[in-house]
Computed example of a mutant assay.
Amino acid sequence: MDIGIDLGTASILVYVKGKGIVLQEPSVVAMDRSTGKMLAVGEEARRMIGRTPGNIVAIRPLKEGVIADYSTTEIMLKYFLNKIAHSRIFRPRMMICVPAVITTVEKRAVIEAANAAGARQTYLIEEPIAAAIGAGLDISKPFGSMVVDIGGGTTDIAVMSLGGIVCGESLRVAGDKFDDAIVRFVKKEFNLMIGERSAEEVKINVADVFPESDEDKAVSMEVRGRSLISGLPQNVTITAGQTCEALQEPVEQIVNTIYSVLEKTPPELASDISEKGIVMTGGGSLLKGMDKLICRRTGIPVIIAEEAISAVAIGAGKALENLDILGPNAVFTK
């Protein structure tokens, strides 16, 4: 069996040839500190974040797109592979996505973790290439395509042609930094401490980085947390206009990096991109107003991929089926 894996900071998606996306779970593992025993993985473990007693810890083994805790990553991969196929002789070929800017040591850590988890052979592919393939772009032709993949830990921006990346940048500003920005804003504005999950709910439900009218700015939701003044639970209402202010810094970093990549793009490819548009993938691309803001600032049409969240995993699976078409620099196996 051939499988493509989007080994993300926030979640793991697994694509199986002929079946499509078979698994989508948060990349979280709950462990008992005293015994070292695994208690839960995925969605069940995510529900424990911020709610565990002292002896239980919910770990996110990937940070900013790379492995931060090797042994926990191996445990998590093994668990998810067993969930897909219960056979003991299940040893698939794996194509795993990694950020465009990653060291050789970090690449080897991913390959070793995958092999230890049961892979027969492991290939790595850079996220923007996988995202482009998953979004349905034909990058094998001498024609420029630009992809902006905003994940949980990293944002990868790349211009591709002839199966490889012509120019691009990877920055460690993405969904997690959006959550952090909301937490900081609520703390400063309302003297209220909220958790990661509450910040994520605000980001998904009301956050808007390009509100076009007063009506858009007024969209709101109630968020619960602990008052830093009284120390007691408290509810406050946060509006889309306030989230726009809260998210300004990380969003500006992404937009400025897109600008920087466009400036380095050869003129012929830049012409292709202005005609075809910029394709956005990843969960962060669904942040309300992100596409309109990039379009306004660059003057280039922006298209959000149909399967934005799963595009990277789908692309990884399809890349494994078409290894001969990919450029020599697209896949890392050593």
Results as ranks from 00 to 15, higher is better:
I182R: 00
I182Q: 01
V183Y: 00
V183F: 03
V183C: 06
V183W: 02
R184I: 09
R184V: 07
R184E: 15
R184M: 08
F185P: 00
F185G: 01
F185Q: 01
F185N: 00
V186S: 03
K188I: 05
K188Y: 02
E189Q: 08
E189I: 02
F190T: 02
F190N: 02
N191T: 05
M193E: 14
G195Y: 06
E196C: 04
E196N: 10
R197G: 07
R197E: 15
S198Q: 08
S198F: 03
S198E: 11
A199R: 00
A199V: 01
A199W: 00
E200Q: 14
E200R: 13
E201N: 13
V202Q: 04
V202W: 04
K203G: 00
I204N: 14
I204C: 12
N205E: 06
V206M: 00
V206R: 00
A207Q: 01
A207N: 02
A207H: 03
D208S: 10
V209W: 02
F210S: 14
F210D: 15
F210V: 08
P211W: 09
P211R: 06
P211H: 13
P211I: 02
E212M: 15
E212Y: 09
E212G: 15
S213W: 08
D214E: 15
D214Q: 15
D214W: 11
E215C: 09
D216Y: 09
D216P: 04
K217T: 07
K217C: 04
A218E: 07
A218N: 15
S220V: 05
S220A: 15
M221K: 13
M221W: 06
M221D: 09
E222M: 11
E222V: 07
E222I: 04
V223L: 14
R224P: 04
R224W: 03
R224N: 12
G225M: 00
G225H: 02
R226L: 13
R226G: 09
R226T: 14
R226S: 11
S227W: 10
L228V: 11
L228F: 10
I229H: 07
I229N: 11
I229V: 15
S230A: 11
S230I: 08
S230Q: 06
G231I: 07
G231Y: 12
G231S: 12
P233Y: 10
Q234D: 09
Q234A: 08
N235A: 14
N235H: 13
V236R: 07
V236T: 05
T237R: 15
T237G: 07
I238D: 00
I238R: 00
I238S: 01
T239H: 10
T239P: 15
T239Y: 04
A240E: 03
G241P: 03
G241S: 13
Q242I: 05
Q242M: 10
Q242Y: 05
Q242W: 03
T243V: 07
T243N: 12
T243G: 12
T243Y: 08
T243R: 12
C244D: 13
E245R: 15
E245Y: 08
A246R: 04
L247N: 06
Q248I: 09
E249M: 12
E249Y: 11
P250W: 06
V251P: 01
V251T: 14
V251E: 02
